[in-house]
Design a binder for these strands. Structure first.
Length: 497
RNA sequence: UCCCCGAUAGCUCAAUGGUAGAGCGGCCGGCUGUUAACCGGCAGGUUCUAGGUUCGAGUCCUAGUCGGGGAGCCA
């Protein structure tokens, strides 16, 4: 008897002998025909369950089948039959219980709607719900689609490091990576005892001349694992640029870390980021790549996960499918920052009020971005050419700007409902200009020695962007909280599981 | 980090400062090719923690912990 996954069994020909294996979602009983039970079985292979019909003549019917509860693991042999109301079901010839649910009254996943807040507290079991199963399949589908997109276009997947000793990425607070702390007294609950212990520890350390002084002043990292300060990466961009300057088209797709104490439905301390980098390319090519990638992802998920997307549209976000279809069908708008400001100022003249002021030179607030993409243009917009004062040092200065309106070749892709989903730029490939920017921003040139080398040895115009993977999963599924689109969310004060 | 809101049965929520309840889930029974099934019964509680006010606190006050929404930062 062939073991089929549920998705295969649902499409198997009537009359086929099959075995399915999975977990019970619900069981309903009937007294007809001397007793029978309907078991909805899921195995993660698709959104739908398959109904297994187990009759009272099974040897273990009263003893086991009739006692199955939500979450039990079973193997069922049987024949594919047509359900009176349409679709395949399985007429069971055997139901083997592989794993019982201990104490069903307290099994955390009940056959009823649960709040997402609650399910976060049982993250080890939440994949068994239809929502989290659907999110997991969509997430996988998107990850595969990202690799396929780049592979088909001649990009190489570059593994950039997770641990970095270059403190120069400048994208927010970083997590320290160190083996030093275990050499220092750890904080104790009993502060008196700790002080006493610390004193002793100082004496011990002083006795050992080769130990780093740590009690006062700056920590000496020469004795640390890497011989200098190290952190978890906040971006693979600077590293991936080095490979771009040899392999022309590259991308990195991996975890990134931000130690910022930001507590929102759109931020994680650990998230996955996709960062392509293209050589011999300008901002326009970069924007086109971003648009092509997003559309490819939307098309793929609509095609390959139609079952899950139907669920998201029915239960999570009504427009989930419809808005992806719309976006796929028309070109993204390109609007300069300066024109965007003009649109906002015009809206204010017409009576629109914003909490924050609109002024050329300041960064757009989320309310401004939301107005542009949701109310004014009502579609994805690529905003380009931002003032240099609000952007990173590595972004290329635009040529021919007025002195007090200097912009850089940066872009943000704004999507209705989620805001900024992609941030990118053409990179500054001219060493003199890059050095001037480093100086302007009080950054130490020596810290960027290898990054500057790229501008000394065969520099070319190049560009790239960063796409937050969870943000795109959020946008596609309509899930409100980013903690529900990653299996094990990491956020301030949250590292359970 | 800032502002606002919340925490009561396994889950979702009620309860004027005066006996702690319902729906769902679980268990038992009835009915039924059922499918968010339906009907009846039973079990299930240190009302987040620590203090305080009061004759009396789930309810009021203080502090803390955790969670949610919004903002900032950003992806």
């Amino acid at each position: 008897m062939a073991w089929l996954r549920v998705t295969e069994a649902l499409r198997a020909p009537v009359g086929a002998d099959v075995t399915v294996k999975g977990w019970v979602r619900t069981r309903r009983d009937s007294k007809a025909d001397g007793g029978l039970s309907f078991i909805a079985l899921h195995d993660g292979s698709c959104f739908d369950t398959i109904q297994v019909v187990a009759k009272g003549d099974l040897s273990n019917y009263a003893g086991e089948v009739a006692k199955l509860t939500t979450g039990c693991a079973v193997e069922c042999d049987g024949v594919i039959v047509q359900n009176p109301k349409g679709g395949n079901e399985i007429g069971a010839s055997a139901v083997r219980v592989v794993g019982w649910v201990d104490d069903p009254d307290h099994y955390p996943i009940q056959p009823k709607p649960h709040s997402f807040e609650y399910l976060r507290e049982v993250a080890h079991l939440r994949a068994r719900t239809n929502t989290f199963g659907a999110v997991a399949r969509v997430r996988h589908c998107l990850a595969m689609a990202v690799h396929r997109f780049f592979h088909e276009r001649g990009f190489y997947y570059v593994h950039t490091p997770i641990i970095t000793a270059s403190d120069c990425e400048g994208a927010g607070q970083m997590f320290r990576v160190s083996t030093l702390d275990t050499m220092r007294p750890l904080p104790r609950v009993d502060k008196e005892a700790q002080r006493a212990e610390a004193k002793e520890h100082c004496k011990d350390l002083a006795a050992k001349a080769n130990m780093p002084p740590w009690t006062y002043g700056q920590v000496d990292h020469s004795g640390d694992f890497f011989g200098k300060e190290a952190h978890l990466t906040v971006s693979g961009q600077l590293n991936v640029e080095t490979y771009c300057m040899a392999l022309s088209r590259v991308y990195t797709f991996g975890p990134t870390f931000r130690a910022e104490n930001s507590n929102t439905a759109r931020h994680l301390a650990e998230f996955w980021m996709i960062e392509p980098e293209i050589a011999f390319a300008d901002l326009a090519a970069d924007a086109q790549l971003a648009e092509d990638l997003l559309k490819h992802l939307f098309r793929t998920v609509l095609e390959e996960r139609a079952d899950d997307m139907k669920f998201f549209a029915e239960r999570i976000e009504k427009t989930a499918v419809e808005r992806l279809r719309m976006i796929v069908d028309k070109p993204f708008l390109r609007v300069t920052y300066t024109d965007g400001i003009a649109v906002l100022e015009d809206a204010i003249r017409k009576g629109k009020t914003f909490e924050f002021p609109v002024r050329w030179g300041s960064d757009l607030q989320s309310e401004h971005e939301r107005f542009l993409t949701e109310e004014h243009f009502k579609q994805p917009v690529i905003l380009t050419n931002y003032p240099k004062g609000i952007k990173a040092f590595y972004m290329r200065l635009d040529d021919g700007c007025e002195p007090d309106r200097q912009t850089v070749s940066a872009m943000d892709v704004l999507c209705p409902g989620i805001g900024e989903i992609i941030g990118g730029s053409q990179r500054e490939e001219r060493l003199d200009k890059l050095d001037a920017r480093l100086e302007e921003m009080n950054l130490n040139k020596d810290d960027y020695w290898w990054y500057r080398d790229l501008r000394r040895y065969g520099t070319v115009p190049h560009a790239g962007f960063g796409l937050g993977f969870e943000r795109i999963v959020q946008f596609i599924t309509g899930m409100q909280n980013i903690r529900d689109v990653i299996p094990f969310p990491r956020a301030p004060g949250q590292a359970e599981f």
